[in-house]
Design a protein around this nucleic acid. Structure first.
Lengths: 232, 232
DNA sequence: CTCTGGCATATTGTATACAAAATGCAACAG
DNA sequence: CTGTTGCATTTTGTATACAATATGCCAGAG
């Protein structure tokens, strides 16, 4: 069900093209709303239109593209309501991951998480934002892995990609940052105490804060990141 | 984001083929594990291989097919772990839908739901199982609609399709049926009381019961529905 | 008898050619 | 000047042809 089966995963052209396009979208090279010309793109990627169109179907299923019959594909432009909805679902998924993780976590896992937490606090202390993001992601990934649920993992990853396409370097002010780090510490404590309900509440709240930050940054900045970039 | 845009939705061949295949899978015409021969299928459906392959990509993204490079597509065969995981996620999604619905539900909505609940109890009293399933689905759909979250709706529908592919007419014994109807009544009461936490717990519990029923039926019956049907 | 190597066949992967639809522009009517 | 109609061009949709890979069988060695 996870798709990554034994056969070494030799990549086929549609998959490779989809991966490349995914990166272009997330990096903002292909901005929201951009129309994707099949011939042009296929020449740029060095593949024919056939595998490219299969890649389009995959990305459309992931919610990164929208396909209109006879009118081609374009990068999705998320509305504020879409962002709100996506974060709500992410919150529910992370909350579930927390509950499931509690049931399976070992002391060794907790030790490992504590190491990561220490690294995160170090990154926080030295104001190393990239490192913070990296470790933050590691922690959440590890929680999801503990949940041991392939469907959850897959759903989570897909949604995450969609939100990353927003490229929210949401201006993380010092107060919010402090709070986020503190919340992470509380999470690991709840996990160590095998307190699923508390962990779930923490994760949902954590997501809610991130959601608010992103929505705020959407409000403030001009809509360039969301609707713009028709790419003339 | 919902895909159903204004342009009347003229269907294109890949979409039509995907819809047809989806039906064939859910009806069990294409059993789990069945290998899908492109040429053969394209002749049966009356389309060429190109749109058919796009349909494959869509269904694979929905988790109904598995595609192995150079070795074609086959209908997914869910393991017990997959089913467990899918139900866990469904529970979290329904729980979220409940919480969101509480925030938006109107008295008129509740009145409508009470009508459905009455119909459901009537179907239950007269042991009309098809009607029960139909009304059951209507109630859950309406709850999801109240949540007003396109991402949630889309995620829910996809997962639901995957589980329906199991074709679980899970032997609903009288005791379980009684309990399910009672749970439904409690749900609507919680919704009327705007008690999100209770509604969520009820929905999660409801799903957990269904999960157990399906897992039990998987245990008992031979694996025909899950692994079988290589289609010689 | 079993295992290995290689060939014939079948099946999937990709490119290209053709068909159908949409888009943009220009000419014309009002 | 504005709006509309029709045509040329572009773009997407589909089918088909060709290439690459996998599959299955048979022969022969051990």
């Amino acid at each position: 069900m996870d798709g990554s089966t034994l056969p070494i995963a030799r990549s086929t052209l549609p998959e490779a093209a989809a991966e490349r396009l995914r990166a272009l979208i997330i990096e903002g090279e292909l901005p929201p709303g951009a129309k994707l010309n099949e011939r042009e793109l296929s020449e740029q990627l060095g593949v024919s239109r056939t595998p490219l169109r299969e890649a389009f179907r995959m990305l459309a299923a992931d919610g990164l593209l929208v396909q209109l019959p006879n009118r081609g594909a374009q990068v999705v432009a998320l509305s504020a309501a879409d962002v709100r909805g996506a974060f709500e679902v992410m919150g529910a998924l992370e909350g579930l991951a927390g509950e499931l993780a509690v049931a399976r976590v070992t002391d060794a896992d907790i030790a490992g998480l504590n190491v990561l937490q220490a690294e995160m606090e170090a990154a926080h202390a030295s104001r190393d934002l990239p490192a913070y993001y990296r470790i933050n992601r590691l922690i959440h990934d590890r929680l999801n892995a503990l949940a041991d649920n392939a469907v959850l993992e897959q759903t989570y990853r897909t949604l995450n990609a969609r939100l990353h396409a927003l490229r929210f370097r949401s201006n993380l002010n010092p107060a919010k940052w402090d709070q986020a780090v503190a919340e992470h510490r509380a999470m690991i404590e709840a996990l160590a105490a095998r307190d699923g309900a508390t962990l779930r509440d923490l994760l949902v709240g954590h997501l809610r804060a991130k959601q608010q930050a992103v929505l705020d940054s959407m409000e403030n900045k001009d809509d360039k990141n969301l609707q713009g970039g028709k790419v003339p």
